[in-house]
Design a protein around this nucleic acid. Structure first.
Lengths: 127, 127
DNA sequence: CTGAATGCAAAGCCTTTGCATACGG
DNA sequence: CCGTATGCAAAGGCTTTGCATTCAG
């Protein structure tokens, strides 16, 4: 694995972010350090970093992929009132998968994508 | 609401499907009945039907939207090998939400969007 | 040195849209 | 009749890719 400046800065910027930026936003962030970087390089490196397991590639279904420097497995909670997205810390504690269920036994589960929506702690306190 | 032949056939084809086809597949299905239908019309009607709540528009993050004639709330299982998408019959049986968990108690849960991925029954049998 | 990574630009894929025409109610 | 829906084709947004050049190890 080759450590180019482009690759290094892209990873650094992404780790700094906590808000799941898209490729275009990462491109603009990195351009502050490397003005001549190309969008293609950003895409190639994001792909490379995701394939190496150093970042995560997400899809919230808005037509644009999002990237996450936090590679710990975690899901997302979206508040329908204030519209913030917070990480769900331990999905398996909150919604444990029943390993003994026949449906589960018939398949091999690699993982899941979960988004819970409702009112966050702050917004539900007011109701 | 205007019932054109195109709209009718698109809805009928989609209700017949159980495998969450993309717009291109629906286009090809409908073309058997209406050979001169345009792809634009298919997209416009899928959008219209989804907005009217008669079908559901899904996004599994493969770059292509999928459509579902089954509007009952249900989740999906995606096989990473054969790429089919099947319905999860009773999510609450397989992954029950722990109502007593502190994280849950602090929030008001309206619903969730869940996608489990892995190998389907057929594909996992061969491994 | 040498192959992997880059910049640039063009192309690809899915989807949306503008416009004149057709057609449902 | 009238306005919505259609067909056609062009354009749009995001992403990928081909190619010559540069650069890390």
């Amino acid at each position: 694995m080759r450590i180019t400046n482009q690759r290094k800065i892209i990873l650094e910027e992404l780790i700094k972010c906590s808000h799941h930026p898209g490729a275009d936003e990462i491109y603009n962030l990195v351009r502050k350090s490397i003005p001549r970087i190309s969008l293609g390089t950003v895409y190639r490196n994001l792909e490379f970093l995701a394939a190496s397991g150093m970042i995560k590639k997400l899809d919230f279904g808005n037509g644009q992929k999002r990237f996450d420097g936090n590679i710990e497995p975690h899901d997302h909670f979206r508040c329908v009132n204030c519209n913030t997205i917070e990480d769900i810390p331990f999905t398996m504690d909150i919604m444990p998968l029943d390993e003994n269920h026949m449906w589960v036994k018939k398949r091999i589960i690699y993982g899941m994508r979960l988004e819970i929506y409702g009112l966050c702690a702050a917004c539900s306190a007011g109701k």
